[in-house]
Design a protein around this nucleic acid. Sequence first.
RNA 1: GCGCCCUUAGCUCAGCCGGAUAGAGCAUCGGACUUCUAAUCCGACGGUCGGGGGUUCGAAUCCCUCAGGGCGCGCCA
Length: 572
Amino acid sequence: MTDPQLVLAERVQQALGAAFGPEHASEDPLIRPSQFADYQANVALSLAKRLRRAPREVAAEIAAHLDFPGTVEVSGPGFLNLTLSDEWIAGQAGDLLADERLGVPVSASKTVVVDYSAPNAAKEMHVGHLRTTVVGDALVRAHEYVGNKVVRQNHLGDWGTPFGMLVEHLLDIGETAAVAQLEAGEGNAFYQAARHKFDTDPDFNARARSRVVTLQAEEPETMRLWHMFMDATVRYFNKVYRLLGVTLTDDDIAGESMYRTALAQVCDDLQARGIAVISDGALCVFPPGFTGREGQPLPFMIRKSDGGYGYATTDLATIRYRVEELKADRIIYVIGVTQSLHLQMLFASARMAGWLPDNVEVEHVQIGSVLGSDGKMFKTRSGESVKLLDLLDEAVERAGQVLEDRGYDPALRTEIANKVGMGAVKYADLSVSHDSEYVFDFDRMLALTGNTGPYLQYATARIRSIFRTGGLAPADATGPITLGHPAERALALQLLGFGSTVDTVVSQSEPHRLCAYLFDLAQAFTAFYEVCPVLKAEDESTRRSRLALSAATLRVLLQGLEVLGIEVPDRM
RNA sequence: GCGCCCUUAGCUCAGCCGGAUAGAGCAUCGGACUUCUAAUCCGACGGUCGGGGGUUCGAAUCCCUCAGGGCGCGCCA
């Protein structure tokens, strides 16, 4: 592990043990980035009271026992300012460059089930759905990179009463026309047309209702039509996934329909064990700690009074499957924040049932709502809808415009524009913390300046350009790295933090941490680029060192962007 | 009524396991291209961290309270 923060933590702990006895050797040294040094250790301040000694005295004691590659000084009320030696930083950066994995250990081999994307085929789909897909895919990639076994679960909304209406509408407009419309991403219009007839046409309404019955009974002709509807819809989903470079495939589909035969068993099991009880004719679980309007226990309804099942039942069956069949160690739900209460009750109910053992971690990665420019929930009512494919097309088109006078041939230009446009859209979703709300804004999303995907892509293009101009390959740049200029030092130090950043993304489910890290790295590189000539360095050893720094930066940027799921063009 | 989340620079957002003078991008203003891609860089401007109280040597960060906003709360998924 090359991360300076971990190295320093270990060394300061050793000093603590040496100075104050072994009982203090496991104290958290509170290593933090510092504006006065590379890092600072704040442990002396917190420890002073317990030791009943002056903080500065404690700090001095630690400093006296501290052995690490750098210099320490006591500062202010008792901070330890830690400055690493150039030689150590250079050595670590060299190790990172030589390391296939860039200082990211293959830490764990847990089975992680990630539930993400999950578009509903029977509901409007809008730009908000991009976010769960993009964030989920980045998390999946991060887990795989650190060695976890990932099972993607695309929990499609592909079953339930709305499908009676949708199947009837499919028949009304004809199979060929329906399939064409669905494949083209007009599912929203399809749904709305069906809905309208359902609400206003008594005859259609009756047909839709009886169609639900034949669907539930899995009558062959109805199932054929349902498959036709779903297949066309999935082809559209796949089109969006491929365009975005999302790793989901048909193998990852585990929709609601998959669990339809398990629902009765879920209810029977829970009722037989007294975990679920009849309330107002419905079968409900009352997990402790959840109260409703009048302080009454809040029900988690698993069977409606009419005998039908809701998504609570399906979700319980899903947990069972993921634990028992998929052998999950950790289950991650990348789902909108509006589902928060439902998921809390789901988890609590599953724990009650014993279907979610204590050794299986479960978490809800809350995805913030997409807001319109009015600051309210972004919803596709009348007219306001932005089609997903149109949005992506526009992103690519805008990226292409910037490339106008670069002199690339059309094919190359299209390829670059695709990667830059998609990168811009995805980075916009990833760079903000996942639980914060998101004001949908074409211009900001597609802006190609600032803390954006294109900025990071551009940094890699400039590095590649150095090697191309010099007729060199990044893989041949092996150093050794030496640090003379402050910009070289800052860049090298920044490189060392990659491993712990990826670690944080995995443990905290926060891809935006990686965005922030990569942005800092790109900035550190461009600062270096401005003041440190690489190819025309003053001497050969400096040139070799700077080439090595450039190569290391390139590899970390590329690897980081790959974890985020952002493709990178060779030139821009 | 109950529960969860949010309120940080003109705008969009980081920071929130308590640490020194609260950061970044955009916007605005001023600079830098005969030099490896200027989709860049450097500098300046800009904040009672929603209000109040508390804990602490120290609070944007933890606790309480108030205000404003969002979301959810039995038969839609």
